[in-house]
Design a protein around this nucleic acid. Structure first.
Ligand code: FES
Ligand code: FES
Lengths: 152, 152
DNA sequence: TTATCGCCGATTAATTTAGTCGGACATAAT
DNA sequence: ATTATGTCCGACTAAATTAATCGGCGATAA
C-alpha cells in the first residue's frame, strides 16, 4: 500500500524533535524515546543510521546526544526515506540483480520506472520543515528567522 | 520502500494483456498465466478481485474469460492499486482504528496525511494507457484510433 | 575510575505478502 | 445428459519483510 516503514516514522519524529532547537541543545535517545513512546533500542538504531548518513551529528560520552546536521528547509523527505529504508522503488525487479521469473516478458516495468522517477522527484521536493512546521517548535523557528532577518 | 505489491504487478500485466484487443476477444487466466509466468491460482484470485471491482468483466463457462471493463485512457493506476491493495496510505495509524502507541504525541501524522493526499492525486492522474502504450499492442491501438478518426 | 552516553552485530518475534489447495458453480460443445 | 473448460471462493501454508530485543564494546565528562 505504498506505506512508509515505522522506522521512517520514528526517524521523522526524532528529526522533528531536534529541529529548531537552541544552539548547543543535545537530544539524547532516552528523552526522545520517552517523549514519543518509541522503544529505546530501536530508536537507538535509527539514530545511529541517521548519524551515519550525516543527517544528525552524534556527540559521545555522558551529557552527549544528537544534533540536527542538516537544514530543515534544504533537506528533503526523500533523503530521509532513502537513509532509513534504502532506495525508493515501486517495482521490485531491478536490472541485473534478483530478477523475478517475469522479468523477461514483463510489459509494465519500463513505464513504471518512469512513474517511480516522478515519485522520487516528488519526495525529493518535500523539505523537512514541511513536516516540522506544524507543531510548537514553530515559535522558536520564527524567532530564529526574525534574528537572521536583521542582517539581510 | 513504497513498493507496489507483486499482486499489483500481476494485475497491471493482466490489464495490459487485455487492453486494446479486438472486440469479442476473451482473455483466460491460463493464457495470461503462461504468457507472463504468473502462478495460475494466484492470478485467478487477482482477476476475480479486478472483476469484482468492475475493472474487468468475466464471462463464465468454457470459451469464457475476461474482458477489460474500463477505458485505458480514463482509468487510473491509483484505482488499480486501491482495488488490489486497499486504500493508499503512507502512514499506518488511521484515526480511530488500530492506533499505535505513538498516536497521542505523534507530530508527523498530520503533515504526512497531506503529503499522502498529494501522492494519491498523483497516482489518480496516471492513466492505464501510460503503462500499456509501450508495447506491441500499440499498433492495434493506432488502428482503432485511425478508425474512430474517420468520423469525427 | 565510573556512570552515562553512543555504537554495533546478531537474534527473535510479529506482521505482511506470496503462493497453494480443495471444492463449488456456470456453460458451451459433444 | 455428460463432460471438459472456464470462473468463483474460502481457508491454508510458506516466504519475506519489518519490528523489536539482547548482549557487549567504545568514548568521555564528571
Ligand atoms: S514483475 Fe518482475 S519485472 Fe515486472
Ligand atoms: S507513528 Fe502512529 S501516529 Fe505517528
Amino acid at each position: 500500500m505504498l506505506k512508509l516503514t515505522k522506522k521512517t516514522d520514528y526517524a521523522l519524529m526524532a528529526i522533528n524533535y531536534m529541529a529548531y532547537r537552541k544552539e548547543g541543545f543535545l537530544a539524547n535517545t532516552r528523552n526522545i524515546s520517552e517523549t514519543y513512546h518509541i522503544p529505546l533500542e530501536q530508536l537507538a538504531k535509527i539514530l545511529q543510521t541517521l548519524s551515519k548518513n550525516g543527517i544528525i551529528v552524534s556527540h559521545n560520552g555522558p551529557k552527549g546526544g544528537y544534533t540536527l546536521g542538516v537544514d530543515p528547509e534544504q533537506f528533503t523527505l526523500g533523503e530521509v526515506i532513502r537513509a532509513i529504508e534504502g532506495p525508493i522503488q515501486m517495482i521490485r525487479c531491478i536490472e541485473g540483480e534478483s530478477s523475478c521469473s517475469q522479468t523477461e516478458q514483463c510489459t509494465i516495468r519500463t513505464p513504471l520506472i518512469k512513474i517511480e522517477q516522478q515519485l522520487v522527484d516528488f519526495l525529493d521536493n518535500i523539505t523537512i520543515d514541511t513536516i516540522c512546521n506544524e507543531n510548537e517548535a514553530i515559535d522558536q523557528k520564527k524567532a530564529i528567522r526574525g534574528l537572521s532577518n536583521i542582517s539581510p
